[in-house]
Design a protein around this nucleic acid. Structure first.
Lengths: 177, 177
DNA sequence: ATCATTGGCTTACACCGTTAGCCAACCTCA
DNA sequence: TGAGGTTGGCTAACGGTGTAAGCCAATGAT
């Protein structure tokens, strides 16, 4: 019967998460250390623990915020598009290219759902299901394809001369219902 | 005009890489530290540096060996199958399930191609191209799909009640030429 | 017999996440 | 007004990480 984490973070927590986001976007995931983050805030690393229980909590707060942002983008892409799936795929890829470190943070580990804003994963996934007329199996396949293309591109796993636009197109055309 | 890394590792290096593999398979990626590895070898961590220049080199040696193993499996799956793409997908997924930590090691960062066995990436990718009659764009799309399904499954990103067999099937059927 | 190479070793450095415990400033309430 | 509790800083420290420097015994070649 103990309380859960409060769903509304304090202003200070929001400041800390915002600083963490800047740090990650500017210097990459490896630069996200408690000491480095504390430097940006003008405090010492242990003080962060007055606001967040550990580093994973910080990461999950940042991931939650990024999911919110992604969800809004996806919903906007979907709204009134003649080609919902294509619009969604473009929005997905663009977000990852604009925020490669955040994208990695969101996707490269498994995450504790209890520490995320409740329902946010589902909200971010919903537009894809909708674009595929409620076919969840197909939506999962398309999500896997999009994530695979995205992370392999970010990680430079494709040959240098690969035509990724073409690969995206081939995949989407095949998966389109 | 300096020499490259010798392509044939010394016996001691092969011992070290073999110990690293056991460590990773038994205890997971996070357990792969130079000190932990040294323990298994009955030596001290700095001694490893007499054989390998740094940890990334160790990881790349392990990744190279794993690529070799994967390539052999894929070639075998392809040989004389009535459904080459299906056989390949099954081999791909099975390998990752049997060796989740190795699969993560291979895929979760970008890699220095200079430190890999030359040509091994291409050899591991070749069966997929062949199964798709030389269509490289489509092969890349299928690879992205397979990797996406695999890593999202390993990281528990799908809802607990998701029917992943069905999602695989839907994706493969759509992408089959 | 000498000398170089190999492959161990210890020590040490700078970084990491995190805990313990101290204390000043502030808020609340009698 | 004064007392007491809460908040949010701080320092010091622990055990972990990758890795560099330098010492030395055993081995092998000239």
């Amino acid at each position: 019967m103990t309380d859960e984490q409060p769903d509304v973070p304090s202003p200070r927590v929001r400041q800390i998460v915002a600083a963490a986001r800047e740090l990650v976007e500017e210097e990459g995931l490896d630069a996200l250390s408690m000491r480095h983050l504390a430097d940006r805030l003008g405090i010492r690393a242990p003080s962060i623990y007055k606001h967040l229980p550990d580093k994973r909590a910080l990461e999950h707060a940042l991931i939650s915020a990024t999911f919110e942002e992604q969800a809004a983008l996806f919903e906007a892409a979907l709204a009134g598009s003649a080609d919902p799936l294509g619009a969604l795929a473009t929005a997905y890829r663009d977000f990852a290219r604009r925020h490669p470190h955040l994208y990695r943070l969101m996707t490269q580990r498994s995450l504790d759902r209890d520490r995320l804003n409740p329902g946010i994963e589902e909200r971010a996934a919903q537009p894809m299901v909708q674009a595929l007329d409620g076919d969840r199996d197909l939506a999962r396949a398309v999500w896997a394809f999009a994530h695979g293309m995205t992370i392999l591109e970010l990680d430079n796993r494709f040959p240098a001369d690969a035509d990724l636009d073409a690969a995206w197109q081939r995949g989407l055309d095949a998966l389109r219902p």
